[in-house]
Amino acid sequence: MFSTVPKPCIRSISNRVKGLTSLYNARSCTSHAGKRADNMKKNMTRYRFIYPEFLPDPKIDFRNPVREMLERNDMIARRHQIDIPEFYVGSILAVEASDPHTPGKVQRFVGICIQRKNCGLRANFILRNIIDHQGVEILYDLYDPCIQKIEVLRLEKRLDDELLYLRDALPEYCTFDPNMEPEILPEDGDVPVNPIKVKLKPRPWLERWERKNLKGLQDLGLNERFYERARAVATPWEKYDLMKEYMRTIPEEEQNEILGEVQSKLQKLDVTKKRQKRKRVFVKPTKLA
């Protein structure tokens, strides 16, 4: 599945933050005020996808402002230690983590992100790859201090929010080269969406995928009665249920407040990192073995 031709480009959050800094600097000029406000708004909406785990659990029973604030502070403190890049379900990642069973080494795992779940310090993601004809999945906590490095090898999105159906797909759809080089994307473009349609193995499956309204699947080749049942249990009216939508999400004003605070802190972090980078002296690596 992995292509050997490098795709056009990786962008880091730092570039985006840089863009935002310049926005702030331009505050003095008043002529573009409306445009700037629009830009700010656009950035905020983008931050919602870049840092989804900073938004708290919308369930009102679990919410507490003090806890959320402490949690965000811890997350930012951890982000000062390692760079957690922007990635989405469908992106290919390499994670280096220290493991108590292999002391003194870091384990590197390359795979496709098939799910991102939970918020706050509990945020996690699942990487999947096929190694020696065996499907392997690892669930990493995003803020686990054992993680040494998270690298995005290919930044892209897929047609669906969850790719759990890759477990039932033909192996070529989730086999990735462990020695894959990071691909570079052009700066300040949108994240590309990979329109690939996955072919599943014949039934039995882990879940009834025909009922999930998935876009990234090829024709499933099922009997008509499966689709009839899927239509019968579908709840297409739910997307018009405003109350449900309200309970399921954080209001926009609150999102802007949280993300604005987070963004200003991460921006400071970026500046300090750059300063440190400039100070760093090149050390010639010693040849081992």
């Binding site: 811890d74 997350m75 403190a77 951890r78 000062h80 230690q81 390692i82 220290s98 493991d99 108590p100 292999t102 002391p103 003194g104 870091v106 803020y143 201090p145 054992c146 993680i147 040494q148």
Partner: peptide, 14 residues
């Protein structure tokens, strides 16, 4: 307890 301000945990051979 590991503080979030500290660098990442590395398991070393002891």
């Amino acid at each position: 307890i590991h503080s979030f301000v500290e660098p990442s945990i590395m398991h070393n051979e002891s």
